[in-house]
Write a protein that binds this DNA or RNA. Structure first.
Lengths: 280, 280
DNA sequence: CGCACTTTTGATTGCTCTCAAGGGTAGTGG
DNA sequence: CCACTACCCTTGAGAGCAATCAAAAGTGCG
């Protein structure tokens, strides 16, 4: 059975191994070693026009209810910064000075643990906020944020955001609802983790990622975020080895296809059944 | 070793077995079978005076910043109900009509799971809100609430509370901060559950309970909430048997003392070291 | 080519759940 | 008052999942 597996993998993975990366060959982790300042980079680092900024802010969960003129006022309070893939945006423990919103690219948010490994990792796309929101009462960032791909980030100081909340009650309500929604999700996840086995958690995470960062590619959905097994392990609370084993099993069953730093979902329906435990 | 343990337990637990319950002999679970209507009960079910109501509301996290006249206005919007120990306040899945605040006694909040057992159990004391807050966008209660002891509960309709939020920005900010704080706690718990072994989780829970519902008793702190092993198991995400084994171990090490439906913390310092993993 | 990193696979170990059985305790009803 | 019953607590044995340790193969880069 081992030999058969190996030949299947060799046949299935070798030819496809380049395709997912072909769409956008990002610089990878080592970019930060070659490129120091954001300004020095042209190709990989997106920069936002004013129109794009307004689009992004309007699609962010907080500001969706504001009128266009209000949105312009809000926009004026936001600063902008671009980062190359791998660059740190902020570290855990730093004074939490600002709330940020992803404008373009992808941001990786991780929580450092005592063990040295990062836990509770999340990948954020355009329109999604990160930074000091859950820490509104807190003085320091709880999580670290890195540019997962080249990205552009809009930021507002904690004070300005605080002022905005008091000026626009609708904004405060939106923030409250969003935080409540995150709380719900956290509590659901909490249920999951304590009872759901690793393969289900991984299946659920893959589906969520396909939703967030999926790109149609033939009959499958390629997850367009260069995720290593280690990243996936941190996201699901499993070890690297377990992730590798589970992915190998999913591959054998035809649920997914995967290789070095890429995964594509072949059968979302069965994967979803597995994730929810309704597959008998 | 087994024989020694048994004699130790017999010596240590028998004499103390009555003391924790002596302070307030609650009617227990079967009270709801004897007593149907709250009005029919005098001794076990607390009723609030107006002065007590204002105190409770003022100490609740939302209203602490309101002025006394504002507090009176808010107070007028709250209804009041008393429950005997064991009575249901609301069930999960019901339409979420109101936000409630514990005025006196203790309320048990539980989340029913598919397995039939309750998970993520919490015990709330006076001033603590429960009900539809995390479900502000939701139509139904996510959790079930029971009277854990005889208790008095203040309630406000979801609509009235919504109106209050928009009328008093400070209230909205307070609600936001509280929800953010709960989110932080949920995320911390999330970290715990995925990596921390059962004995540490149980130790941490015991310390939290001692903080919330502790009563000094000689050199130790008796946890003044009639918790069964099953309750503790639901709170920590462990099985009843594991809780029993861990408590037996704690007992052997002199960290706690425990018996039928009561636990007292003997050595909070060592327990805390154990909970945080800094005991090498 | 050599180095660093990622991925895979096997073997072992430990923790916790489940199943099973027994003893203790409090309320019930005769 | 006493047996009865239901529930709570404890303990043991066994099984399973996943972490850890260990080793090897594949991949990209200088």
């Amino acid at each position: 059975m081992d030999g058969e597996t190996r030949t299947r993998k060799a046949a299935a993975r070798k030819p496809a191994a380049r395709k997912p990366a072909a769409g956008k060959p990002t610089a990878g982790r080592t970019a930060s070693q070659r490129i120091r300042t954001p300004e020095a980079v042209a190709p990989d680092v997106p920069v936002c026009t004013t129109g794009e900024r307004l689009d992004v802010l309007g699609s962010a969960p907080f500001f969706s209810r504001l009128s266009p003129p209000e949105l312009e006022q809000v926009n004026a309070l936001f600063g902008q910064a671009s980062y190359a893939a791998g660059q740190a945006i902020h570290s855990a423990g730093e004074p939490a000075r600002q709330l940020s919103i992803v404008a373009a690219g992808k941001v990786r948010v991780a929580h450092p643990t005592a063990g040295g490994q990062d836990a509770r990792l999340a990948i954020l796309g355009p329109g999604e906020p990160f930074g000091s929101l859950p820490e509104l009462g807190d003085a320091t960032y709880r999580d670290a944020a890195y540019a997962h791909t080249g990205c552009c980030v809009l930021s507002i100081s904690a004070e300005s955001f605080h002022d905005l909340l008091q000026r626009y009650p609708a904004l405060a309500m939106a923030a409250l609802e969003r935080t409540a929604a995150r709380l719900r999700i956290a509590q659901q996840t909490l249920e999951q983790i304590s009872a759901v086995p690793a393969d289900r958690r991984i299946a659920a995470t893959l589906l969520a990622l396909a939703e967030l960062a999926g790109r149609a590619e033939g009959g499958a959905t390629v997850i367009d975020a260069e995720l290593s097994r280690k990243d996936l392990a941190a996201m699901t609370g499993a070890s690297v080895e377990t992730v590798s084993r589970v992915l190998a099993e999913f591959r054998r069953d035809g649920l997914i296809d995967s290789g070095r730093r890429w995964i594509s979902v072949r059968d979302p329906v069965r994967l979803s059944r597995l994730a929810h435990g309704t597959h008998a």
